[in-house]
Every structure is written in structure tokens, then in C-alpha cells.
């Protein structure tokens, strides 16, 4: 008779429980009404079951977002865990929607659920992908924009994981600056 070992039937638990949110830009509704929780998961297997079941970012309509956040943190600046934080922001050009967007987003998800940022993983709140006509964006949100050491380390590791060239700079911006900006650009607190 065949023996089934525990490794064959137990799911692999993640360090954190994560919530995947979907934002659909319906102008007849308010911002929070357009934000929907899709599902929560806390094992490797349940992550893939969800990921394999939903559309890739490149297939979403313009104005839509996916957000993956630790359970208990809402994907908005106003959440207590986000309000002092900021984001590593990657802006993609239009061509990259076909070449890089889905690959970068999956890599971002794997960084988060696998706790890729070593001792700084606790700083991570979540990640967001915005699908926009002018160019898509992917960002990793962290909880404290003053925590330079953690932020820079996360940024460097993230860039490595995405396979970005050394010349390609990504910037970190505080949510405070992003929400109060008057023009279309926000100053970078850090860049790697």
C-alpha cells in the first residue's frame, strides 16, 4: 500500500494572511464602493488557486487595480498602517503592458507572500497594480516612510527580483506627498 506523507496533504502556510482586492473604476460610484475584496488566503496552494483563477493585469480594463495587502490593512492611504508610509513605484511604458506587466506583478506577489525582504518584510503593507491608458504602475507599499534602512533594502531587493538594470531607477514616495501633490509628479524620498 502507498504511504502518504504529511508533506503531500498539508498545505504550505504563509507567514501572513493576505487579502486580494479589486478596484473597478465606475464613475457613478464612490471610490470605496468601487473597491472590492476578492479573497483572502494564507497558504501557498490557496494563493495559486486564486491567482490561476483570475485575469492577469494586462487583461483588465483601464482604470482597474489589483491590491494585495496583509489581512487587516485596507489598500488606502488612510489606513493606520499606511498613513505614515509610502511606496516604491514603478511606472511602465505602454509597450511594457505586453512584455512586462504580468511578469512584474507575479514577481511582486511572490516577493510579498514569500517574505522576500528578510527582516524588513514586516515593513511591507502590500502592493498595488494600476492599469492605466497612459502607462501602468506597480508599487510596493511600506508602513513608515522614515525607516530609510528598511526602505532602501526593500527597494534594492525588489529591483533585483524584477531583473531591472542598474541604470533603471525606481523611486520611493511618501503617501503624504502623493496625496497632497499639486502637479503630476511627486518627489522621491529615496531612489535605487
Amino acid at each position: 500500500s502507498e504511504t502518504v506523507t504529511p508533506a503531500q496533504y498539508l498545505k504550505h502556510p504563509l507567514q501572513n494572511r493576505w487579502a486580494l482586492w479589486y478596484f473597478k473604476n465606475d464613475k457613478t460610484k464612490g471610490w470605496t464602493e468601487n473597491l472590492r475584496l476578492i479573497a483572502k488566503f494564507d497558504t501557498v496552494e490557496d494563493f495559486w488557486a486564486l491567482y490561476n483563477h483570475i485575469q492577469q493585469p494586462s487583461k483588465l480594463l483601464f482604470g482597474c487595480d489589483y491590491c494585495l495587502f496583509k489581512d487587516g490593512i485596507k489598500p488606502m492611504w488612510e489606513d493606520d498602517k499606511n498613513k505614515k508610509g509610502g511606496r516604491w513605484l514603478m511606472t511602465l511604458n505602454k509597450q511594457q503592458r505586453h512584455n512586462d506587466l504580468d511578469r512584474y506583478w507575479l514577481e511582486t506577489l511572490l516577493c510579498l507572500i514569500g517574505e522576500a525582504f528578510d527582516e524588513h518584510s514586516d515593513e511591507v503593507c502590500g502592493a498595488v497594480v494600476n492599469v492605466r491608458p497612459k502607462g501602468d504602475k506597480i508599487a510596493i507599499w511600506t508602513g513608515n516612510c522614515q525607516n530609510r534602512e528598511a526602505i532602501v533594502s526593500i527597494g534594492q531587493l525588489y529591483k533585483e527580483r524584477l531583473g531591472l538594470s542598474l541604470k533603471a531607477l525606481i523611486g520611493y514616495q511618501s503617501h503624504d506627498d502623493t496625496s497632497s501633490k499639486s502637479g503630476s509628479t511627486t518627489k522621491n524620498l529615496f531612489s535605487v
Binding site: 504550505h12 514577481e107 514569500g114
Partner: peptide, 20 residues
């Protein structure tokens, strides 16, 4: 300890999950 998984480990489960 922390449950950390590298990308290859995670990727290895992508299609196992669907079949269970």
C-alpha cells in the same frame, strides 16, 4: 521562525494546486 519561500519553491506549486 519566519516562513520564507523563494520564488522557485513558490512557482513549483502553481499547477499542483489546481490538481488537488
Amino acid at each position: 521562525g519566519k516562513k520564507r519561500y523563494d520564488r522557485e519553491f513558490l512557482l513549483g506549486f502553481q499547477f499542483i494546486a489546481a490538481s488537488t
